[in-house]
């Protein structure tokens, strides 16, 4: 499970460099996320631009990551591919997460609020 990270001010940008988050890797994904983002900036922006496929195990793992960040930190998503976006929309998890169209928007938002 390859994750690339970049720290940006009060956020960490985590890019999933894998084509799938499915039941074969969901637990590893969660564990790796804990390693790279378990402590750190308040905002975690998860970039799913390389992920073509996410099943219910993967969706559950993303929710689990949000929970492990705790109440004072947020998990935001960006760069969802059409199939992944549809899974979030169908399950209404698009209402639970802040979803940005791309990384630029994810970090521009923050600047405009600041």
């Amino acid at each position: 499970m390859e994750l690339k990270t970049e720290e940006r001010d009060d956020a960490i940008h985590v890019i999933v460099a894998e084509p799938r988050i499915d039941s074969a890797v969901a637990i590893r994904f969660k564990d790796r996320m804990r390693e790279v983002a378990g402590d750190g900036p308040a905002r975690v922006v998860l970039d799913l631009g390389s992920v073509d496929f996410l099943d219910s195990s993967g969706l559950g793992a993303v929710v689990a990551v949000m929970k492990l960040l705790g109440p004072d930190r947020t998990l935001e998503l960006c760069n969802l591919t059409p199939n992944v976006e549809k899974v979030f929309r169908l399950t209404r998890m698009d209402r639970v997460f802040t979803i940005h169209p791309d990384a630029e928007a994810a970090f521009a938002d923050k600047r405009s609020i600041a």
Binding site: D55, S56, V87, L90, V96
Partner: peptide
């Protein structure tokens, strides 16, 4: 759809399979 225990900040982590 799976339901959490009624809290907005506690979404479910599983149970999406049959829904999908």
């Amino acid at each position: 759809l799976p339901v959490s225990n009624g809290l907005d900040d506690d979404p479910p982590e599983g149970g999406f399979g049959w829904f999908l």
